[in-house]
Amino acid sequence: MNIFRLAGDMTHLASVLVLLLKIHTIKSCAGVSLRTQELYAIVFATRYLDIFTSFVSVYNTFMKLVFLGSSFSIVWYMRYHKAVHRTYDREQDTFRHWFLVLPCLVLALLIHEKFTFLEVLWTFSLYLEAVAILPQLVLLQRTRNIDNLTGQYIFLLGGYRGLYILNWIYRYFTEPHFVHWITWIAGLVQTLLYADFFYYYFLRFIGGRGVE
């Protein structure tokens, strides 16, 4: 564990907590894409399949449970909780996110480190996570203005993988044989997709107004 990865995990944790705070306290998911949340639930479900077979550390297992629990409960809230579901912008959240799943699965079947069931699904989760934010970014452009909490959520979610990139650079220089092109490229693509959001975020958010 290094400071970059810890910062990345804490940023990721903060993003799900901000979203849960918004949904649970003010019972609103305005501006939040259910489709992105569904994709993230699939990402964690396919990435953490080894949660019961391979134990890394208490921290690792605890965080996996937090991300699994939070992503599925956010989907449940947005789909089935009456008050929250009412604030879901169904008409605007129309990105065909299932069209992202199949290409990621095919790509994982073609490009992976090991051709095993767990490894292919794990690689699939990396590819899917890289594009999972697309429905949310499209919704963001349609709804123009979003509230601060949603803006913070997207910022933290984009930032965590950026910190992971620093972690990979650090581990590359400090650990022999630490080379994982698939993880690195997927993480880079994921972070680059946030580029224009970060641009507007810093322009607007730091200026004290909402994100437009």
Binding site: R5, S54, E119, F178, T183
Partner: peptide, 10 residues
């Protein structure tokens, strides 16, 4: 092995 190393990340 090196693959286990990868799996120590979230």
């Amino acid at each position: 092995s090196k693959n286990d190393v990868t799996k120590d990340e979230l």
